[in-house]
């Protein structure tokens, strides 16, 4: 499992220990549900986010 406390400390997020204690089990549960899904994505699948090259209002 991921060491969330280590990540928070390494990134300097400044999350107090008492709050981190509550976050860790939530993140563990989310990771357990999500990581197996992510492992099965075919390589060619692109993300469903939108980017357009068309000039935006303030660029016109």
């Amino acid at each position: 499992m991921t060491d969330w406390k280590l990540i928070a400390a390494a990134r300097g997020l400044g999350i107090p220990d008492a709050e981190m204690e509550k976050i860790v089990p939530v993140m563990d549960a989310l990771e357990a549900g999500f990581r197996p899904l992510a492992a099965g994505i075919p390589p060619a699948v692109e993300p469903a986010v939108i980017f357009s090259c068309a000039p935006e209002e303030d660029e016109r």
Binding site: I7, A8, L13, I23, P47, A48, V49
Partner: peptide, 20 residues
Amino acid sequence: DQGRLLAATDYIHAQRLRRL
């Protein structure tokens, strides 16, 4: 805080799964 602990790859994977 939970969102700040996620990896960039988690977000990209989620948006890829969304398409599927």
